[in-house]
Amino acid sequence: MALNFPFTAIVGQEEMKLAMILSTIDPSIGGVLVFGDRGTGKSTMVRSLAALLPSMSAVEGCSYHCDPMGKVLCSNCAALKAAGKKFKSQTIDAPVVDLPLGATEDRIVGSLDIEKALSQGVKSFESGLLAKANRGYLYIDEVNLLEDHLVDLLIDVAASGENVVERDGLSIRHPAKFVLIGSGNPEEGELRPQLLDRFGLSVEVKTPSEVMTRIEIIKRRELYERDPEAFIQQWSEAQNELREKIIASRKRLLKVQVNDEILIQVSQLCAHLGSDGLRGELTMMRTIRAICAFENKKIANLEMLKRIAPYALRHRLRRDPLDDTGSTVRIERALEELFQK
């Protein structure tokens, strides 16, 4: 495997780090959208995520790495289970799959296996990137430049957690549950609201302007380039610590109490901001829970709500073309109006 810059060694960008960590604690939060200038470490951070994720067990030989304990299984595994056979399981790294901008539909959803079709005359399915990303992460750099027909496809799969292939004479469905991570620069094109809504959290990153921060970044990068192995070794302790913390947080997740009082406040906020649909509320609730688990708090409070509201709602607000106020500002204003006495 190619070496990656350690997640913990990334300087600054705390917002983005937190969003990433929360989405690993509770994947059902539904992905992170990172918008910002180039050269701010967006890609570096996503790629570094792979090394941080706890490994997981999967059915051996299954091309969708189904969870042996899980309820959602691909057709093969389900058939095995129905036949009463036991799964052989193996431990694998959580997949982080890069979706190149120019990927064809075939490569994403999968297509007819050419080799088998030609040599044996057998119709069989060759799985695509969506299958690979099942139970892991799907990363789309420059997501706002993705072609429309691919966006449509992703919207559907991301919502249903299932990839339905009806093409080339194939009729296949397989689980494709993944956390969508997108990055891009809003100046190069807007994202369709439908896709925006699929992302749970969003962060805006900027190039750090603080001189010392910038210097520190370059120093670390230079050290890394000179000797990647040693650098990774040096950070392995911090990495392990964070990984343990994520695992522990996942266990704590269900024990966190989110009282009705908080839920009411969440609804109030969403209604006040006029965010479309209920996904905003859902995401906020899950995120509050995740951050409580991560910071080892048993009961959610207003403080938490205030902290995560911008992440969860920023991209869900209706854009008024003639109003220049940034979404973050609008959220902060709403928070103040609602909860400041």
Binding site: G39, V211, R214, I217, I218, K219, R221, E222
Partner: peptide
């Protein structure tokens, strides 16, 4: 080896020229 001082000086200079990209330093 690149001395740390050189890196620092360079990054500061980059900023004063309005060069935002961090890649430049590398």
């Amino acid at each position: 080896e690149v001395p740390i001082e050189a890196l620092e000086a360079m990054m500061i200079a980059a900023q004063s020229f309005g060069i935002d990209s961090l890649r430049v330093g590398l």
